[in-house]
Design a binder for these strands. Structure first.
Length: 116
DNA sequence: AGTTTGACAGTAT
DNA sequence: GATACTGCCAAAC
């Protein structure tokens, strides 16, 4: 299975009102040092995938990908609409809303068929 | 085919 | 703690 597809699947599992970071996703996929690749995948991802990509922020909780959501502030609004709180204009309360992909049993299955 | 550039993160200083 | 440095690897040039 392709790396990009695995990323899509994990992102799709992020619960509403939660956020996670790039490194955690990479780790959950068995690519501990692939944080930048995850970012790259999301940057080329189309919006037609219904992916909650706005729930992915960097490790500090900063909305580094906001520019990719069209108008500035769009990403922030999407999160606020789900109940995510901010500590400043571009930073979410990361500790409070953090969701670890590796902690979700559904993600474990993705290790099984990873290659190609 | 070599270089640059990312929606990053971990370690070292 | 706050920077600085380094690894990561797929694309576009």
């Amino acid at each position: 299975m392709e790396f990009a597809e695995r990323v899509y699947r994990v992102v799709a599992l992020i619960p509403e009102g939660c956020v996670t970071n790039y490194g955690s996703i990479a780790r959950a996929l068995g690519a501990p040092r692939g944080a930048r690749m995850v970012g790259w995948v999301l940057s080329v991802a189309r919006e037609d995938r219904n992916l909650p990509a706005h729930r992915v922020v960097n490790r500090e909780g900063v909305l580094t990908g906001a520019p990719h959501f069209g108008p500035a502030e769009t990403m922030k609004l999407l999160l606020q609409r789900e109940g995510v709180t901010f500590i400043d204009d571009i930073t979410v309360d990361f500790k409070k809303h953090y969701w670890d992909p590796a902690s979700d049993p559904r993600v474990d299955g993705y290790f099984e068929f990873r290659d190609s």
